[in-house]
Simulated assay, not measured.
Amino acid sequence: CHGLMLVFEHIGGVPPVIVMDNATGAGRRNAKGEVALTGVFSAFVAHYRLEVRFCNPYSGNEKGSVENAVGFLRRNLMVPPMRAESYGQLSRLLLERCDGLARDSYCPRLPDVPVAEVFDEERAALMPLPSTAFDPVRWESRTADKYGLVDIDSNRYLAGPDSARSKVLAAIRWDTVTLASPATGELLAEYPRQYGRSRNVEDPALVLPRLAVKPRAWRESSIRPDVPDDIRAWLDSMDEKTLRESLKAIGDACRAAGFDPAMQACGEILRSNRDMGLHADS
């Protein structure tokens, strides 16, 4: 849905009809041959006032035309493989290459006319873009485990120890997973969405309070590599009592200001007076 939105915005309108290959993200075909749209895609179609057609699995020409178009774009836009700093930048680069391809290619039925020129004439058939942007999001209710972790698509995201064994509302978008309290709507955490499997995704600011209760787990904690070297070495050298107090103080600072500012403050404290320690007052 997000990809189609980018295309619609780029061409300045909405095509009245789109033809889909049998993409499971859009819909599933049952034994009778009927297609049931997914929740998000159904809302997307209603928002943009689209007519959607799915390829007939028994008509090779329909499915073949879609696959041929995909193959054409792969060969002409993605060879050699593209490099980009983000998915957003990659999308912009691909759209720019599509525009260049349209300018340099000629319409099969009109050999002397570039594709871009023919498409400019066809823009008149596009429907206007809606005045309100569509938010392609899937809402799901999950129960956190005893550590406050929520399982989404075979990955576990930390909602926080306060959410252990309680309901959590997850807003799943193509690039982010946002966790909130269903009772109050309070934002618990937001993470980049993971597309691998069996990963734990944790916000250091939410892990630190749990470590303060069990400071012996500090050396094996998942967030230890995220802590700067000088602060990590100082914490490693502390006895259990001081380590517990320091982790609690850092956790409080993270909740107030965020992980990176808290780490910067810790570094300043240790550089100015290493013996003072990382306590709540400092």
Rank of each mutant, 00 (worst) to 15 (best):
A144M: 04
T132S: 08
L37I: 05
M276F: 07
D153K: 01
A265L: 13
G3Q: 13
E190W: 00
V213P: 00
R142P: 03
A159D: 03
R244Q: 15
P204D: 02
G25H: 07
T38K: 14
F134C: 02
G148K: 12
S59T: 02
V168L: 01
P192M: 08
P114S: 10
R74E: 15
S163P: 00
A233L: 12
A102Q: 12
L90F: 11
Y157F: 09
L4R: 05
M127A: 09
R142D: 09
L95D: 06
T242Q: 11
E96K: 11
N155K: 03
A280F: 12
W218L: 03
E96D: 14
N30L: 07
R244N: 03
L187A: 00
L6Q: 15
P128G: 03
D175H: 13
A217I: 00
S105N: 08
P261R: 12
C1S: 14
K167T: 09
L235D: 08
G267R: 14
D99R: 14
Y157R: 07
T178G: 05
P161A: 13
G148N: 10
A212W: 13
E117A: 12
P225L: 01
V45W: 06
M127N: 06
Q194Y: 03
P128S: 02
V201I: 15
Y157S: 05
T242K: 14
E202F: 10
A116Q: 10
F72K: 12
C254R: 05
P81V: 03
D151A: 12
E34L: 13
V14Q: 03
E202Y: 13
V150G: 05
E85Y: 09
A84R: 09
P209M: 09
A124P: 00
E96N: 10
F54T: 06
W234K: 01
V19S: 02
